[in-house]
Simulated scan of single mutants.
Amino acid sequence: MSKFQESKLNFDFKGAGWNVIKYDEHLAHGKIRNALHPTKAVDFLGIYNDKKLYFVEVKNYKEHTSDPETKDVLKAGGEELMRRIAVKVRDTIAGATNAARFSTNERAFFTRFNEILLNDAEKVVVIAWIEFDEMNEDERKTKMSVWQQKLKQKLSWLHAAKISINSIDAANEILPETDISFA
């Protein structure tokens, strides 16, 4: 069982099948970030049932959707936001691959990460967890659908990937055996 808080959201990976690390705060990422700035990272890396690899990036714009900085990131149909998330996935893959070779912390996790990543039979799952203030449900669904297509395009190089844009409403359908709530 692993419990984390990110962007005022609680993530409780409660199933015994989860092995999760908070990668953006992990020593393996810190070593790279300190040597090569800027290097980005997703919030969580997870392995479920020792065979499914998850990249999870969390963005909580709730009550900040109208802020100038947030508006700038969300403009043009979320193009900049999806670019930023794709860069985090790219940099995470590079860093986690290196961690399997040199990490003294959680070496087994990073070794398994690479084994799954290289397994053509398994899709890796990239989840962008985005909370924002929406005008109505239809607008929210439309926006998230457009964002999902943009992220799929930006991550097309990551063959056999399942890309998902979600909010707290769909928690149980996307991350198995996980409870997500606002802090």
Rank of each mutant, 00 (worst) to 15 (best):
K3I: 12
K3P: 05
L9K: 03
L9A: 00
N10R: 10
F11I: 03
F13T: 01
F13C: 08
K14Q: 07
A16W: 04
V20T: 06
Y23G: 00
A28G: 01
G30S: 10
I32Y: 04
K40Q: 09
V42I: 08
L45C: 07
L45Q: 00
I47N: 05
N49R: 07
K52V: 13
F55C: 04
V58N: 04
N60E: 07
E63I: 11
E63C: 02
H64I: 12
P68R: 07
T70I: 15
L74I: 05
K75L: 13
A76M: 09
G77P: 06
G78D: 08
E79W: 09
E80L: 12
E80A: 15
E80R: 12
L81F: 06
M82H: 07
V87N: 06
V87E: 14
V87Y: 03
K88F: 00
D91V: 01
D91R: 01
T92W: 00
T92G: 01
A94M: 08
G95L: 02
A96M: 06
A99R: 00
A100G: 15
S103V: 02
N105R: 08
F109A: 00
F110E: 05
F113Q: 05
N114K: 11
L118R: 04
K123S: 14
I127E: 01
A128H: 05
I130L: 15
E131N: 09
E131F: 01
F132K: 08
F132G: 10
D133M: 14
D133N: 07
E134L: 10
M135I: 12
N136T: 10
E137L: 15
D138M: 02
K143L: 11
S145H: 14
S145A: 08
W147H: 11
Q148P: 01
Q149V: 09
Q153D: 15
K154C: 12
L155H: 06
L155V: 05
S156F: 09
L158C: 03
K162P: 05
I163Q: 03
I163F: 11
S164H: 01
I168H: 14
D169L: 11
A170K: 11
A170I: 09
A170S: 12
P176Y: 08
T178Q: 08
D179E: 14
I180C: 12
S181A: 14
F182A: 11
